[in-house]
Design a protein around this nucleic acid. Structure first.
Lengths: 339, 339
DNA sequence: TTGAAAGCGGTACCAA
DNA sequence: TTGGTACCGCTTTCAA
């Protein structure tokens, strides 16, 4: 059906080897032969067979990406950045979604491993580092993004989460908040880092710790927005009530905002709110949301770069690329409307 | 490195063929042999080599998806639905983004074709049906989602766009709007269908057509939100000013809403707004946005189903799966606040 | 500069 | 029920 090297070789009266060499522009081919082969390849629209090539070279020119949830804008942006960087280098991206389920994630990783991808990028929803041991056994290079694991010396690309927490908390304090609450995320490195940053910033200003100002994380991974609503309801019971809230991420902040407004309170006059992620619809929310930019696209690009370098040279110890978060202030923390 | 059939065969003193047959549970294998082989496969954690298998069977167990923009929630949801349906059937998903660029889209399709995927799903940003001819030449089954093409008899999964336009417009009329404008999308089937539905509904109520109530589409594919802002500014110049706006999609509606509110007008009191897409953050927007649900997840699932059926039996004429849109009313068209 | 032969890891066919 | 052999399309090695 499809055009093969053999067809080109026969047509031209040369050998398959010659054609193959032209394709990968080997030096030892006569200029005239090379031109004839190239021309016929064009004319016949020859496409090399990836499977055949992969079988002999062991390289698939494919990178896998496992994310907890594609619809979450953060992961969508990472995927976009990754895909566009890989494309430029001739690689394709296989996408797998773990749907926030560690079991499923392990399965998907197994499947990608079976496909002998050249590298795998993972935003893990895993509790332990177990499944990564399996990847290491297979010697497939992998890069963790966003979330990392204690005791696992792996390649990593992400933002400095403690800096996120500090930046957000500092900002709330700087616009006049004195009772800053935090709606934390689940037991993963990102959430823990942001919590730590929050505590540190609060301590620096002698404004904490405050009892009950960090509602406990829920076990079941309910969706972030629902989580934000529920946690905010708890916070509104407190006396004195918080006058600022730093939310684990933007969906959580959306939930918290809806609860605050639903209770008849004003943002930022009564309670200032800041999230994390700086998703593109933040400016259009009921109150335009201040947020910490996580550099999601950059994370994707850097992850691609790192993955490619691992593919080229399987050497060296694990590297970490830590990006600096950036504050993006909007109405939800506008100091002019506070005071 | 990795365990091969040969290793298993040697270890057990059987032939490679026997092992292969066990793997695909062929009937003609002795029960005892089968068990021994299976056990060793487990113990050695044998993973078949996809490339080798693909080379001989011609099947890659991989489906491609080409979208204009992964970050757009609609496409993210389609991708999610598609990926989860495919996974259940043992297929993987290769993702390519065209970044709204027809040229890039054609390139990406070419690349997927070169990889000999079993099927390709495309949300096209193409102006013409040209690149699909190429796919047809290669006999790779493909499914169009969301957008379709005049004169191209292809498999398609999407929503009934004229129904979208009618539903949205009818709703605006039903909440009391009498001067209904439409911010249209680019020259693609979805936008044209919605426009047609809008006109038809308006005609039915003898409320249109209204001169200048449908600002011309822009050529350059600026981002939807900017487009919404710009078009809305035009509409606000009109006298009489519209009292309802149906926007091509939700990002456009976000832009339009921001312009309306920025001009000191109220939604829905002065102008009611409805979008299309029913993206998950609609309820949290500055004014919770009424929208037409496009069934994005269902589109992904149905596309997967259709693609798989095409793979199984390459026969039959193209099929179209047309889903019915659903109205989701929120504050931006709340009749109680109009009147 | 060119090409013959071997082999990558499987599957299909047919004979034993 | 089992396995020998050929072959999928390409790359690698080495000799011509």
């Amino acid at each position: 059906m499809a055009v093969r090297m053999k067809d080109i070789a026969q047509e031209l009266g040369v050998s398959v080897v010659t054609v193959s060499k032209v394709l990968r522009n080997h030096s030892d081919i006569g200029e005239e032969t090379r031109q004839r082969v190239l021309k016929l390849m064009k004319d016949l629209n020859y496409q090399p067979n990836f499977a055949a090539r992969a079988l002999v070279t062991g390289r698939t020119y494919t990178v896998g990406l496992v994310v907890p949830d594609l619809v979450h804008p953060f992961f969508a942006e990472v995927a976009k950045g990754l895909s566009s960087s890989l494309r430029k280098r001739g690689y394709s991206l296989i996408l797998a979604s773990s749907e926030e389920d560690p079991e499923l994630e392990a399965q998907e990783i197994g499947r990608l491993l079976a496909r002998r991808l050249d590298a795998i990028v993972i935003a893990s929803t895993q509790g332990t580092a177990e499944s990564f041991r399996r990847i290491e056994e297979q010697k497939t290079p992998y890069v963790l993004v966003d979330r990392r694991f204690a005791g696992l010396r792996a390649n990593f690309v992400g933002v400095d989460d403690e800096a996120v927490g500090e930046l957000a908390t500092e900002h709330l304090v700087s616009v006049g908040c004195r009772r800053v609450a935090h709606i934390r995320g689940p037991e993963v490195s990102t959430a823990l880092g942001r919590l730590e940053g929050y505590r540190r910033a609060l301590g620096r200003h002698h404004l904490g710790p405050l009892p009950n100002y960090v509602p406990a994380a829920t076990a079941g991974d309910e969706d972030s927005e629902a989580r934000g609503r529920a946690a905010m309801r708890e916070l509104l019971q407190l006396d004195p009530r918080p006058d600022g809230v730093f939310c684990y991420n933007d969906p959580t902040a959306m939930g918290a905002m809806n609860t605050i407004l639903g209770a008849g309170l004003r943002i930022p006059e009564d309670i200032a709110v800041i999230g994390c992620g700086n998703v593109h619809y933040d400016p259009s929310l009921r109150v335009p949301l201040s947020s910490i930019d996580q550099q999601s696209a950059a994370i994707g690009e850097r992850a691609a770069k790192l993955a490619l370098s691992l593919i080229e040279s399987k050497s060296g110890r694990p590297r970490s690329v830590i990006l600096e978060p950036k504050l993006v202030a909007r109405e939800s923390t506008n100091p002019a409307r506070r005071a």
